[in-house]
Design a protein around this nucleic acid. Structure first.
Lengths: 121, 121
DNA sequence: TATAACCATGGACTTTAGTCAACGCTTTTC
DNA sequence: GAAAAGCGTTGACTAAAGTCCATGGTTATA
């Protein structure tokens, strides 16, 4: 599929797709011979959706590059992917906990406003 | 308390505290007359901790300024704080959901690596 | 008492994650 | 078949959230 279609299906702009590609998070699988247009695989939609989730979870693009490199690396040498993964799992859990604390602040605030909406002075 | 103590208790740098203050997220309650040093209230520690939670939940400083202004505003006029709060509550819930999806990806990946750690070629 | 650690202020600098503009092509549509 | 929409590439630009540096005064410590 071409970049415009991928943009529509994934909900991110063409420029963002190009940016992800430049960072190495995404690859086009081929080029249309006639016009040199890039062609992306179907699962690029899923890849982008994982990227968006990861970002919402606080991962940086740098983190994602490492994460993907671990997925695709050959594990012949003494390479420890667990340290990184465990670190990110813990970070994500902490972030979820913080988000839930803040969600609680928000809902309590909302409730307080509902009960006494015209406090002043 | 002075900025150095607040920095230690809250775990953010002095510069960050000054930055928050400039943005209006934080106020010093007074100055030491002798030397013009700023003096922060005890609950500034808690304020900063809420700020950090909010940031982890994806709120920007701009969001927090609005949020705080709603807490402190006088509600005499036709001012609707619910729209904003409801929006932020929904955003936060969505972010938590995304984070949990990504956490699942992470743990699955970890598990896959644990079972077959030397895939190659 | 000197010397290190702390404070205020101002402004420059940095990183991250895109976004925008310009250029010249190709493809689709009216 | 002309105009609009889509594509690739390069490079400049932006906003957010700090961080760093310089300057000059103050306080704590050895």
């Amino acid at each position: 599929m071409r970049i415009g279609e991928l943009s529509k299906k994934s909900g991110v702009s063409r420029d963002t797709i190009r940016f992800y590609e430049k960072q190495g998070l995404l690859q086009c699988e081929a080029r249309e011979a006639a016009n040199n247009y890039k062609s992306y695989p179907e699962d690029a939609v899923m890849t982008i959706s994982v990227i968006r989730d990861a970002q919402a979870a606080g991962m940086s693009i740098g983190d994602l590059i490492v994460f993907l490199s671990q997925l695709h690396a050959t594990y012949g040498d003494d390479f420890d992917g667990f340290t990184f993964l465990d670190e990110k799992i813990q970070e994500t859990e902490e972030r979820i906990a913080a988000s839930e604390r803040f969600l609680d602040v928000l809902t309590r605030t909302r409730e307080a406003l509902r009960i006494a909406p015209y406090e002043s002075d």
